[in-house]
Structure formats: C-alpha cells, structure tokens
Computed example of a mutant assay.
Amino acid sequence: MERKLWGTAAGKQVELFTLDLGQGNSAAITNFGAALVSLYVRDRSGEVADVTLGYDSVQEYEQCTKYLGVVVGRYANRIAGAQFTLGGKEYQLAANDGRNHLHGGPGGFAKRVWDPEVISTETGEALKLSYFSPDGEEGYPGNLQVEVVYSPTGTGGLRIDYFASCDQDTVLNLTNHAYFNLAGHGSGPILDHELEICADFYTPADAESIPTGEILKVEGTPMDFGSKTAIGARIDADFCQLRYAGGYDHNWVLRRTGSGLELAARVEHAPTGRVMEVLTTKPGIQFYTGNYLDGVAGKGGAKYEWRGGFCLETQFFPDSPHQAHFPCPILRAGERYAHSTIYQFSTK
C-alpha cells in the first residue's frame, strides 16, 4: 500500500493511502474524516477514471460542507429537533440542519483525524482507521471506540467494515457519504445513470427531510426503482416527495432475507459500461442525487454542479431514535456494532 504525508489538521499528521483493489482499480483514502478521496475504476475499454467526488487537500476537507466521501457519525442522516431520549434521559445535539441534527453534528466524525494502521487480510493489504469519541462529544452519551476498515474485495471492489463498542447505551449509525459519477467525477449530471434499488418500500419525509413515520410502497410512484430506471427519468415529476427535496434524498427499506451482506442497489452507466453494485448488512439505503451541489470546487479543477453526483448511503433509517417501529439504532453498553458495505465494480 502506498502512503504519503498529505498535511496536518488539529496538530495531527494526515496521510493519504492508496489501496490496490485489483483488476486495475484502486482507492485513495485519508485518515482525515476517514474519507474516500478517489476511486479509480476501469471502463469496458480498459480506460481508468476517478468515479468519486472529492478534494485535493486536507484544508478543503476541513472546510467541506457537502460531506464528500467522509465517514459520518455518530448518527448519519437526520435526528428531528436535534434531541433524543434514551434510558429516560434527554440528550441535546447540535442543530446544524435548520432545527434538526445532521450527520453527527459540526464536530462529528467527518471532521476528526483518525488513527491509521495498515493491516493484512485474505484479499490483500487493508487500511484500519480508529477513533475514540469521548462521552458527551457532540452531545452523545458514552465513551465510544470506532474502527473503519477499508479493504479490497479481491475482485476489483472496495469493502468497508464498521465496528464500534461503547461503555454506555448510545445511538449509532455509521455510513460513508461518497458521491459517485460513473462517467468520472466532474463529468456533469448523473441523470443518464440507470439505477435499481432492491426495495418495495420507502420512508417518506416532510419538507425538512424528517421521516413522517410512514412506510409506503414505491409501486406506482417515481420512487420505484425495482427495475433498472434512468435516474433522470422521473426526478422532476410532480410528486411532493421530489418537490420537498429538489430531487431524490430518501431512505429505501431494503428487501432482506438475513443478517449478512445482500445486494441493495445496482447502477449502470451505458456510455462507459461501468457497473456498480452496493451490498450491505444495513436495513436501509439513502439515495441522494446531489441536489445541493452548487459548483463546488473539486479535485483537479473540476466543478461539481447540481446533480453532478449520487450517493447510496447504507444506514439505519433517518430519525430512528424517534420512530420505535423503525429498525433499532441503539448500541447497548458492552455490545459490538458490526456492519459492512461493499462497492463492487464490473463492466458490460
């Protein structure tokens, strides 16, 4: 694995690691925000392109407000009213998305320097990133030890394993916030990508992107990606959920048969032949179409315009601490949090 000094943040050394994924693919990861900086993937003709949005420097990640490629936590997505009750005690969080809490708050995991370690796995060298989140950080209870492991799948893909334990009951929902564009980052809108999501239901949200608590069928609505459909086919439909979010920014309820890794979504880009499959152990996936990208200055002078990237964030459902019928995001004291996601690549 290649590694180089990339800068400093909060008085700590920040490095950039290049992970060989095999089959000509590779990933660049930094220990600032545990961020996936670049993901180089071959197309059907063997040409390599970087298919994730990102930045060229640590300073840009420090200032980033779009969460490009970072690990977010303690709680990915939104918690209504920036508070939750656990064990009869109310915990107040930062209101950093209107009156609500988003992606762990302004001092969440995306803004922390993680401790790196190169480790060996059956599929090759991997990168383990560790972070200790003290009791009360961003308002959350308990001393939490977190590990994120980036490793090759052995077949050209990238695997992310999330582990954690805490000395108190807490809520935890970790994900990676990578934005993808299979044409190559900075290549314009992703509306021609064809998407399939393995879900029959989704959780509708209000105008603040907070789930209403309903679990509705996707059938007969623009939320139906049960079969391969262009992202742009219905994105501007006269449908309240799309009007609220300015496009897609919703949680789908994945069809699951067990607790292991299962296919959650598949994306195809016909012009290049690139195919990405997302597998996960999580119960939900947030599909987001870059509705708030607004000419962000990215890597290599690229400009990330509106709908210039899409996210497929594997997760517990948004605002689950307030929705008892959603899958439970509580990590009990002494228990082990362990979830995995794979981004697998191929061509057709």
Rank of each mutant, 00 (worst) to 15 (best):
P211F: 14
L263K: 15
D56H: 08
E137W: 00
H250G: 08
G157C: 04
I285Q: 01
N251W: 01
P106S: 14
L127V: 02
V14G: 11
R332T: 15
F317Y: 14
D200F: 07
E208R: 12
T30C: 10
T30K: 07
F239C: 01
R112H: 12
G107W: 07
A302M: 03
V146Y: 07
P211R: 04
S320H: 07
W6H: 01
R307Q: 15
G284R: 03
D20H: 02
R78Y: 09
E313H: 03
H101R: 02
I119A: 10
A199N: 04
I330G: 02
A265G: 08
T347K: 01
P318K: 09
V14Y: 03
F32R: 03
I160Y: 00
N181R: 04
P141W: 06
L242K: 00
V58S: 02
S259Q: 15
D167W: 12
P152F: 06
M1G: 10
T289E: 09
L195E: 00
Y131A: 07
D200I: 02
N181E: 02
Y244H: 10
A95F: 14
L261C: 12
T175V: 10
P329K: 02
V41W: 01
A94Q: 05
D56I: 03
G24I: 11
V148F: 02
I235Q: 08
A338S: 07
F239R: 01
A10F: 13
P327Q: 00
E268T: 09
S26C: 05
W306S: 09
A333L: 11
G301Y: 06
F84E: 11
V278I: 15
S45F: 14
A95G: 14
F239E: 01
E90K: 13
W6S: 09
E196C: 08
A207G: 12
Y75H: 13
T281Q: 06
G284A: 13
E335R: 10
F316V: 01
G142D: 06
C328W: 07
R44N: 12
G232L: 11
G309W: 00
G156Y: 00
S120F: 10
A95P: 13
L263Q: 08
N96C: 10
T123L: 11
D169Q: 09
G124Q: 03
E313F: 03
S340A: 03
W306D: 14
G232T: 04
G154E: 11
S45M: 15
G104E: 03
N25Y: 08
R159F: 01
